[in-house]
Design a protein around this nucleic acid. Structure first.
Lengths: 207, 207
DNA sequence: GTCTATAACTAGATAGAC
DNA sequence: GTCTATCTAGTTATAGAC
């Protein structure tokens, strides 16, 4: 367990819980039980630490996700939208083997990245991992060819919002589900709930 | 134009753009061209200022929204989900007469309230304006009675996410729509795009 | 590589003159 | 009600000893 990894692990959890702006380097280093100066020694700045936390997950996720989406694009038969969105499930859940609570942490971080930090993380991710996005769009087009590029643009952004918002408040939602419905739902359960929703949304009839 | 209102107007725009955490009282008071101490004199604290900004909009919105939803609940015929969600359109757009860019600002603030501020704003809004939420749930239940309370809970949160995320990034989305599709879409246009999406999502078949 | 100490700065809040 | 000046506590980042 190197200092660098101790910092990454502590930062990841704190960022997911309280956002990037809401988490100080002091909290991170005291949680990680390392010296305050270690962050700047190993990463240079807080911004670079944020990128490092996200990259660790993206490098794990993106090959699996790309391959799942490209498989769908290359199949002969037309996929359903539910099948396209289901392609995300296995790669996302694989993050739990990579790291405890990996799926949940990653999706929460993604949500933070879209609302904190005035979009710098969004820019970082879309320019650094474009193949994931392109193959996803191709897969959706194959499932619903009548959808124009413009309609698809809107609906995919709506979908991103659904996912990202749900995940950044997933702890609260799971608590409520436990209290109100006496259901112990985990992150996999939330993902399974959201797929029919976004698939129906993207597949809504064109006005 | 009182000092209090100058502060509210400046705070509203800055909070919407950069989040509650990301905006300092110094930025607000210099934007409003009032003294730094004025915020604490008039509102007591930053937290109270945030509440005041949100309340100004909620007090304008909630009577119209309640009445539109209650009308749907009292009608004899079964409404469609598109009709239920369309009940939000007129009250939301009326915020533009109340204040320039009112609709857009309010929805962006709502988005911030769900991700910044560790949920204190969510608690504030749900406890302070429960009738809106109750009548909305009743209307959705009338449109889709087969949906269990639990399924509805999830799908309404997904919907909240769709709206809130879309609106907090609506400036960026409208820019992209203009560049890529040469369409000048405004906030009313975005709302009209999102309604079929969320209606289809909430109305998705039960697994 | 890791530590202490501290620089340089920003935050929200307040006391007290006017 | 409005101002200046200031307090206290927090932030990121760095210099320099070990």
């Amino acid at each position: 367990m190197t200092t660098k990894n101790k910092i990454l692990d502590a930062a990841e959890k704190l960022f997911a819980d309280k956002g990037f702006n809401g988490t100080s380097l002091r909290e991170i280093t005291s949680q990680a039980e390392v010296n305050l100066a270690a962050v700047n020694y190993h990463f240079g700045s807080k911004k670079e630490l944020i990128k490092a936390v996200m990259s660790r997950y993206m490098n794990e996720l993106s090959p699996r996700l790309e391959s799942a989406l490209i498989t769908i694009c290359n199949e002969e038969k037309q996929p359903t939208l539910v099948e396209v969105f289901s392609a995300f499930v296995e790669p996302l859940l694989a993050l739990n083997q990579f790291k405890e609570n990996g799926t949940s942490n990653f999706l929460q971080l993604l949500g933070r990245g879209y609302t904190d930090s005035q979009g710098f993380l969004r820019w970082f991710l879309t320019t650094r991992y474009p193949v994931v996005i392109d193959s996803f769009i191709t897969a959706v087009h194959k499932a619903y060819p009548e959808l124009s590029t413009e309609e698809m643009f809107w609906r995919l952004h709506f979908t991103m919002g659904t996912i990202v918002f749900t995940m950044s408040s997933s702890d609260a939602l799971m608590d409520i589900a436990k209290n109100d419905f006496n259901k112990n739902i985990d992150i996999a359960g939330v993902i399974k709930q959201v797929i029919p929703y976004v698939a129906a949304g993207v597949g809504a009839p064109i006005r």
